[in-house]
Design a binder for these strands. Structure first.
Lengths: 112, 112
DNA sequence: GCTGGCGTTGACGCTGGTGGCAAGGTTTAC
DNA sequence: GTAAACCTTGCCACCAGCGTCAACGCCAGC
């Protein structure tokens, strides 16, 4: 499939896909006319990237997951690098929730 | 006091103070040589701004608080505009905490 | 052969809150 | 008198993840 269709299937934009490629997260065969050509695995890759972005990871964080899938694993979370990113993010979320609770208490006090 | 001292007292930078002025949050008398001159009320104002920024408000959100203090209130949170901002932020925080909990559960599942 | 809808690269814009620098003027200390 | 440390305005840089436009190529349908 070409970039427009991949974008639509993955719920993103062609611009974003070119950006991912520029960041080394995605690669594409080229047809004779220079168009990028993608397959189903690319679609899985992009969906993984989007899912991670949606839960607050940045693009760099998705790299281990992408590499994991590229190495043949069915889930991007199966590799040590991915586990490390997930673990780190979990700790960040916990810290953040604590911080938000403190801020919430401050605001409630202000409003009280 | 001049901008450097105000910055130090308020725990920020002269650059930030000039930016607040540019955004209409701060105003300064000028001495004959063109230097900005501040007083204790300005210090209170800037401390209020910094405190709000630190708990996740953006500069625009601090405006009602600044105006509230300028109108003579001892606390910037006493005016309706400030209360509205606080209330809105409270709702945002609650939504965000819920969202973070969901993401946390997702990550735990991935790790499990 | 022409229009419209794809694709390509390259480059600039955006958001927010500064940091940093240039190129000057002022004040303070020795 | 001179050096350091302040101040002024103005402008570019930055972070991320794109959006958007320019200027062009490719291809299908009529």
């Amino acid at each position: 499939m070409r970039i427009g269709e991949l974008a639509e299937q993955a719920g993103t934009s062609a611009r974003a896909l070119r950006y991912y490629e520029q960041q080394g997260l995605l690669s594409a065969r080229r047809t004779s006319n220079g168009y990028r050509e993608y397959d189903e695995e690319d679609l899985r890759l992009v969906r993984e990237i989007r899912a991670l972005l949606e839960i607050g990871f940045n693009l760099e964080d998705t790299r281990p997951f992408v590499e994991c899938i590229r190495e043949g694993h069915s889930s991007g979370a199966e590799c040590p690098g991915s586990v490390e990113v997930l673990t780190r993010r979990l700790a960040e979320i916990d810290d953040y929730i604590v911080r938000l609770r403190r801020i919430r208490a401050t605001i409630v006090k202000e409003l009280g």
